[in-house]
Amino acid sequence: MTTVKDLPQEDYFLSGHTACPGCGGAMVVRETMKVLGANTVVYMPASCLLIFSDMYPYNAFKVPSLQVLFETSAICASGIKRALKRQGKDDVTVVAFAGDGGTADIGMQALSGAAERNEDILYVCYDNEAYMNTGIQRSGTTPFGAWTTTTPLGGTSEGRGKNEFKKDVPRILMAHDVPYVATASLGFPADFLRKLEKAKAKKGFRYLHVLAPCPVGWRAESDTTVDLAKLAVETGIFTLMECEDGVLTLNREPRFTPVREYLKLQGRFKHLKDDQIAAIETWVKEKWERDRALAKALGPKPKVPVAMTK
């Protein structure tokens, strides 16, 4: 089951949710749920997803779901899984869907802790590159130069959009030597589905970082979600990779389409000056050099014999 055609007709994330038209996050959740199926428990933090799918008394999931707090996705998913294991229901997949703010920023501590303990959960970060639920504030994964409401435009160096580059969360997760870390883009369905299936099948901590364009927050047309997800990869801005037990593979050599093609579709980059665009171009080039070097250098993680318990 690796192609779009083989996916089941049945949805476990249903229509009637109130995501904005063209929401990339809603697409990520719907596709993921199609692969995970009925034997799943969902955790979602305070996020766009919670508000558009879980505003009482309505709920868009066909499977059980829990919400506790913003920063507790990894730990609550772990708590659910441990309890299920105790109840003899270890076959149930526990998935946490969190946005970039809940993952890269406020949720990082619990995420790192759960990864280090190799909790048996699937963590899906739908990265829309800002705090969209609260109204487009910059997060750790907001890209360089992007306008947000907390990086507004103005006449000073503080008024040129975000001054820092995107935090590389998957690389942080790789440092935990978990069984599976991968990135995916809505623009590449086959790659996305293959990684979802792999993640579903593995035991232990699995992390999937999916680029999920947000037409509202990116100041783009609602029908450009998929194009943007594709272009982010083809410009080299977003790298498709996977890291299995320490072995890093870059999944797609991009065409290196000029970054301007990607930026110009988005109002959040409209103000960028040539020097900022040049900085992004340099960043892409150097990032790829480093990613390639990393992929070469990172071999399998140390294989230490483990005295098995129970």
Binding site: L14, S15, G16, H17, T18, S53, P57, Y58, N59, A60, F61, K62, V63, P64, S65
Partner: peptide, 11 residues
């Protein structure tokens, strides 16, 4: 209402 009830809301 409840699980899977979002379909009550015709968007």
């Amino acid at each position: 209402v409840g699980v899977g009830s979002s379909t009550s809301n015709r968007t």
